[in-house]
Design a protein around this nucleic acid. Sequence first.
DNA 1: TCATTTTGGTTTTGTTACGCAACTATTATT
DNA 2: AATAATAGTTGCGTAACAAAACCAAAATGA
Lengths: 166, 166
Amino acid sequence: MGRKRFADMNCSVAQSLDVLGDWWTLLIVREAMFGTRTFGGFERNLGISKNILALRLENLVEQGIMRRVDVGQHGTRYHYQLTEKGADLITVIESLRQWSDRWVYGEGREPVQVVDKRTGQPIPPLVIRDEAGEPMSMGNVVVEPGPGAAPATRRRFGKRQQASPN
Amino acid sequence: MGRKRFADMNCSVAQSLDVLGDWWTLLIVREAMFGTRTFGGFERNLGISKNILALRLENLVEQGIMRRVDVGQHGTRYHYQLTEKGADLITVIESLRQWSDRWVYGEGREPVQVVDKRTGQPIPPLVIRDEAGEPMSMGNVVVEPGPGAAPATRRRFGKRQQASPN
DNA sequence: TCATTTTGGTTTTGTTACGCAACTATTATT
DNA sequence: AATAATAGTTGCGTAACAAAACCAAAATGA
């Protein structure tokens, strides 16, 4: 019965993946961050088929992640560019890149490097920090219902430990 | 035919997505971070069908992201738990969560909060910092071929600007 | 102790998502 | 004037996903 969507899950991660989780979507965003702008540019650099690319770009525009701007004099040449919402995916892309550099390629075998233009040094790993700016151990974080939690979700939180007992 | 895989793309983001990009995969990782351990626990909490869950867990174990430990006396009760490689996906999950809190739900409507146990305060947003620890503007980053770049890729880098001309 | 439920799956059968090739129409290039 | 490039759309085949039925061993309850 078709693919199950995550939009009704009342979970932020599920929301993101509902929008970004289709095959190719995040690679298109990465390619846009890399500087590609045209339909043909995405097609060539990614090796994606045209119909899927058209669908993905349409969806990204609908979601406000990219914008399609007319750059031709006669209305048949376009640029796709990231909006502020799309550019803010940089931490998602960067964390994915760093993870596979650590666990798939390994140090010294990274295919690309992201460096600080001013110093020439690779940028340091993304880490979760506390308010004081200190890297945080996961033992110190707790997940709680947020201000937008549905009552049903609040109930689920209390039961969560029992949902999969030892 | 079949779905095109990203593994041969010589790009770290593509590598990650090749492993993590299937539908449901990252939600299973999130659920594991939340504390779920059993097959039935994932099934109930996510609403995923059994056959897909079985495939995903098998793949996650193969990839070394999760591990299946026997917790029954007679060998039919198991726990799925994140390995170090899997737990290191926390920045990926957190960046996805924060992105949709900013752009989908909006402030004050977050369904869950991740807080510092010691202070009770929500943890601050993940940001890309330079070596001095200062938040960095994207204008100061450059992408370069890394030590593991294939010659073909190196060539592509120089041509990248021309691939999608103005 | 015998039936029922729980756990952790596999199998079968549909439907949707994706890949590839062919096609189109307008606009640049030679 | 012919050729190629841009930005797609359409049709068809295959792979991925969903739902339900089924299964065997083990734990639970009466």
